[in-house]
Amino acid sequence: MSAADVAQPAPVPQPATGAAPEPHAAPPAERGRTERRHGQVRGLGPGPVTRWAVAIVVGGLFALPILSMLEFTLRDGDGHSLARWAALLDPDNAARYAPLWQGLRNSLVLAAVTVAIVLLLLAPTMILVTLRFPALRRPLELVALLPISLPAIVLVVGLAPVYLFIGRTFGTGVWPLALAYGVTAMPYAYRAIQASIDATGVRTLAEAARTLGAGWPTVLLRVLAPNLRGGLLAASLISVAVVLGEFTIASLLARQNLQTALLVVNRQDAYAAVILSLLSLLLVLVLLLLIGRVGARGGRGARTEGP
């Protein structure tokens, strides 16, 4: 599943909030969209049999390895038990699993710094470009989407000398790695944020707020951020997902994160590595589900006032 798919707000019907909205209050764009969606399902879409067949094949492809992993972690001699899961938390094994917990902690720090980069650097830049420098929008889009076409290994070759310098200047702490992750997460975050900027009349809202006496910080925090909330949350969660799944850059730059730690532990205890992999998959899955919900909610609010 690609990030862009996840970030697009799915159209959902408006919930009845208190007093029923007046019939003519619903914007025509929304009505048109709903009709088109229905038309697709009834007229042009595949029949129920085809749909179920596709769902089962695709679902099976995803489920099979995950279920196999689960089965693997439950193996105990000839039978099955939860012993391996329990062992993970056993204080006696703390030393053996220490790299895992350290890797997890590092990954969470990296995720937090990456999200900060997305929210405090990327998002304001995109808003600024939309409001003040619309001519720069295309170039920014190009730059933001570029990392998706660069293999991680190419990034590392370019980043190695930079990190050599960073290592000497800031020490070999793990957080500077988030600078690279900011770059890898950027294409996904960009798409999510841009979708919600496009759906919101950012310019008019900002101008209205300014004429009412709001300075730029107020405009950003009190007017634009709440209306772009869906896109900003989606961008944050997708960044977390990218960071938790990253291996190449960390490994080649000799930093430790969850994925590199998994590899290390895997050499001694394959079961623990698989359990942790399962857990991190589960975490990312939860994040993606959250994005879907958030996108749907944010999308509704934005659509009702987009120009």
């Binding site: 919101t200 008019t204 209205a208 004429t211 007017v223 009702t304 987009g306």
Partner: peptide, 20 residues
């Protein structure tokens, strides 16, 4: 003088209310 210090009131064509 910046817009927000001019002490004006402005009504736009449409869609200027804060949706949230």
């Amino acid at each position: 003088v910046a817009t927000h210090r001019r002490d004006i009131g402005m009504v736009f064509q449409a869609y200027s209310l804060f949706p949230h």
